[in-house]
Each structure stands twice: as C-alpha cells, then as structure tokens.
Design a protein around this nucleic acid. Sequence first.
DNA 1: GACGTCTGTATGGTATACAAGACAGATACT
DNA 2: AGTATCTGTCTTGTATACCATACAGACGTC
Lengths: 266, 266
Amino acid sequence: MQDGETLTEWPTVDADEERPANSREKGLNRVLHMLEFLHANQRAIGVGELAKGLNAPRSTTYTLVRELVEAGLLEMAGDGNRVYFGKKLYLYGMAYMRGNDLLRRGRQEVDTLSRETGETSELCMLQSGRYTIIHSSPGARPFRISSATGLQIPLPWTASGRLLLAGLDRDRIEAMITDDDLVLPDGRKLSLDDFIDDIARARATGYCVTSGLVDAYTKCLAAPVFSAPGKVEATMCLVVPIDTSEERTGELIALLRERAARLSIS
Amino acid sequence: MQDGETLTEWPTVDADEERPANSREKGLNRVLHMLEFLHANQRAIGVGELAKGLNAPRSTTYTLVRELVEAGLLEMAGDGNRVYFGKKLYLYGMAYMRGNDLLRRGRQEVDTLSRETGETSELCMLQSGRYTIIHSSPGARPFRISSATGLQIPLPWTASGRLLLAGLDRDRIEAMITDDDLVLPDGRKLSLDDFIDDIARARATGYCVTSGLVDAYTKCLAAPVFSAPGKVEATMCLVVPIDTSEERTGELIALLRERAARLSIS
DNA sequence: GACGTCTGTATGGTATACAAGACAGATACT
DNA sequence: AGTATCTGTCTTGTATACCATACAGACGTC
C-alpha cells in the first residue's frame, strides 16, 4: 500500500498477481485495502475521499463502510462524515496481545529498557514481508525520534532488518527486497551483496549495529529474539545518538542482547 | 455472539433482519462472524471447527481464512492448523487507541486509580448496544476478579450500564434490553421499570452503585464520562468487596467521580 | 440564478464469489 | 485389513454482490 496505488496499472507486485483489466473486486479485498489506507494515513477519512484514494466505486464504498461501521470495525469520526478505526479493532488487537506471550513480554522489556537506559527502544517484527515497529518506547532525550507503532520501513535501512532476515536463504531474501528498498533516505544505494553479507555477519555475531542509515544523527543497535533455534521472530533495538561512545555502545549492546535472550525460546 | 449460536434457527436478532432461508452469505459477513467467533472463544481455532462453529461451508471458510492470513488479520497459531487474530489487527487497534483521546487518557486514569486504591478499576463503553469492558486494571486484592478486556455483559447487571443509558429515552432503552438481560446470574429477574428508574436516579445523582448483582461478593461503583453535556460516552468503575464500609465507599465514589470528570469534555 | 463539487441513496445488469460436492491424503480406532 | 473422521485442494453452476448510472439535496463561488 504505502504509495498512492492508482490501480489503473500494476507496478510491482508479489509476482504471480494477475489482474484481468480493472474488473470487479471482491468486497473483502476492498475492505482490506480500506483498512490499510486508514492505517497509512493515520486519520479519519471521508467516504468520498476513501473511494477516490482506493480507486473504488463510490456506491460500493458507501455500502462497505456502512457494514463495517455497523459491525464496529470502523467508527464515524467527530464531524460525522469521516471514518476511522473502531472499537472492535481495538478489542481484537488487545485479544491478539493477550494471546501472544512474545508481544506481551516484549512490550514490557522494551518499556523497561528505555526507562533504564533513557534511550528510545523498540520491538520489531516482520509483517507480511516488511519491517514493522510493533512497540516503541521513547527515550528521555530532547530530540525524541517519533516512530509510530506500525510504521513500516524497508528492511535494508535498519539493523533489525538484517537480523530478521538471518536464517533465510539468498533467494528468499532477494524476493523480499525491491530495488527501491536499497536506496537510503539520503539517496545512497546499498548493494544487494553488501546487504546479504551484513545479514550473514549479523547472524554470526548475534547482534547488529548500523550507523547513519535512516538519518545522519542516530545509530541503531539490535539483537534477535528467537522463537526456535535459528528462527528470528523479532528484534529488540535501541536508537542512540551516532556519537555515542564505543564503551557505552558496547554496554548497551550487552544489555540489549541479555534482554532479547530473555524473550527468546518462548 | 456470546453463546454458541447454532444458526440453524435465528433466535432474537435486531428486529428487521430478514433471512431468506439459508441462502448465500457475503464473504465480508462471514469474515465478521469469524472475528466475533474468535473473540468470543479467546483462543486459536482450527479451520474446520471454525466452519462448524459458524455453520459456514468448509470450502468458503478455507478460502476466506487464507485471504485473511495473507492479509495479516489472522495468523496461523503454533501447531499450524489453527488460526487466531493477527498482527495487523493489533496494529489497527493501536492506531485506534492513538487516535482516541478518551481511550488513551482513560486507560491511564484507570491504571492510576487502581494503583492508588488497590481496587480493580475499569473503563467501560457501549459497543454496538452492549456493555463492554474496554480496559481494566486488576486491584491488589487476593481474589482478583478476572475480567478480560472486551468482555460483554448485559447492561442491567452493572452500575456502568445504568449510567451508559442515562440520557436515552425509554423506547431506546427498551430496544437495547432483551428479556434475558434482565435475568441476573443468580436467577433473580429485574423488572424493566425498576431498571429504568435506576437509570433516571443514576443520571440525577451522577454516579451509581450496585451491590451483589453480577456476584454476591462485590459491589460496583461507577461514574460517567461525558463527551458532551448530557451525553455519556463511557464510565469509570471500581469493583470492591460488598462489605466495604459506607465511609470508604463514599471516599471511593468521590475519587471516582473526580477522575471521571477529568476525562469528560474531551 | 447558473454552475460546480460535494454528499448520501436507489436502481438494474452481469461478472463472479460463494456453495456443494468430489477428491486424495493423514490420522485414529477396531 | 476396514471404517470413520479429520485435513486441504479443486471444479462447476448459479444466486448475488459489485458496479455504473442516475438522482436529490447541500454546499459553495461567480
């Protein structure tokens, strides 16, 4: 989703997608796109705007929105014309959290870690092939890097991304990375080979540090959380100023690895 | 949902539901039922069992589940055959919370209140015509009343229920209450008139106390949170032992009302 | 007043998503 | 071995969900 997605032409999809012209679309798919759209925009959106944004017929959009509002998955927002996520989704989300040991404990560890260190700490996972911040706890620093939960970032931009792909073979990795993903925010382009080397190294050392990738002022320390031997289920990471001393960085990495290990095994 | 819901016969629906035999059902509706079913059961469920539980065709259920898993709304659970809520729902739920001042601040107030008083505290709202525990923070007592977030209870069983219906006229109230709702867990039956009187009284006094309704050992103190003058958007409540002294009860009510008032206005 | 752009609703035709059923494989019990 | 009950996949017909289109009302702006 991320980008505007015009739909008149399909740019680059998972591969085996077939789109017979702009034929009819299942209601369920429309709904899934609506949810993604709302998530991407992070605000209530009018029905008309929704239809336009998804390139969906207005009439269909109206009926689907009505059904979702009745079901409680969406709610009419303040001014009575826009919609956003509803209470039901909140309840389902809480149910997911309760049923998920790793997430529940991970959130606590992240909160604790950021309180203890004063740095921004995050719990990250792969979510449908993308790097996703599942929970983040801001540090005490004046410049807090605001990173909303659910934010998705190309895997090569992050230390966590390297760890999350450890254990996958080259083909799998290539399938998940597009060329765009390898272009950093400042315009530099990573080579795929370098990235894959990084992954192997991260896998071997059991942690990963990247400096100045997403922005020029921070470095990112990450450690893997295993759900089974060799299988990286999530990462914990710390975002610290790029000029953090070698010594303190080392201490933080040690702490991070210890906490991540605690979460492992499940 | 709540009960098993066999579906072969429709018991009591919103009224104007028309079910032309057991005709085809929209995929979206099937999905909505699936989510409700998972929420009611609070555990991962096999696809076959899901189909049976919803009285849905197996083939349809398989395809819908596959689509939802691909979309990330559901996830395959551990043993690889069962499904439960997925990360996407968690992310959407968090987005809902971020976008909802009342919920965000309400959660904090509830947590604070239960920490300060040692009693179980809850934030409650109407959710598609049902009383719903949106957030709860267990108290320090040995017998903690476990009440999962998302739990739905008939409105007449609770103090919050009386407040949530304040401001609605009699017709509206009657429409929301079924005869079953008036039967308490211990078998006693409330009269609708008494219940409506209670609502009026709660509205007038600005708080509500019920004793021994849901169970014989607790009483429930509730105070309204207003989103606009006269419009009750939510309630905060405390669940305390039924033999709590008059004096302490009074103090708690005062505290509760103060905190609920803080949340109001939005 | 005439025009444009929104909003929300109602309608009918048709592409297709749902349902039924058959299928093969796995597991279990007798 | 045989029977029973799971599982997941595939195919085929048809009821219907989607879509295009039209409509009425509420806003503006010129």
